[in-house]
């Protein structure tokens, strides 16, 4: 991937990251929030790959695998919780779940 400069890759991942962050902040549906979270995590994965290839090391890719595992675990638990929440609150809207305040 030496043909593509590392800066471009980092910028792309930064862009994805910001998109994901906006998604987390702006979306109200829990599933959508979780998906945006995945986008953020995958953006960091991309950044690791880019950085790893910049230095010609495998470390970046290994970390990418770890990130993927994390993302999988998070989404697994997140969906499980979402299911329970839907069961209990009959909605996935983040605002109506937000009962504790103060």
């Amino acid at each position: 991937m030496s043909a593509i400069p590392a800066e471009m890759g980092l910028m792309l991942s930064g862009l994805l990251f910001v998109l994901g962050l906006i998604g987390v902040l702006a979306r109200r549906n829990l599933i959508m929030i979780l998906m945006s979270l995945e986008v953020m995590l995958n953006a960091t994965g991309l950044a690791f790959i880019v950085a790893g290839s910049k230095w010609g090391q495998a470390d970046g890719q290994i970390l990418f695998l770890l990130v993927l595992t994390l993302a999988a675990a998070e989404v697994g638990i997140g969906l499980g919780l979402a299911l329970q929440i839907f069961h209990r609150f009959k909605t996935l809207d983040a605002d109506s779940i937000n009962q504790m305040q103060g």
Binding site: L65, T69, A73, G76, L79, G80, L83
Partner: peptide, 20 residues
Amino acid sequence: SVHFFLMAIFFVIFDMETVF
């Protein structure tokens, strides 16, 4: 059935483990 859902989660987890 909730099992479909469980299966999806198991897949995600175990598939990641197989990568290693």
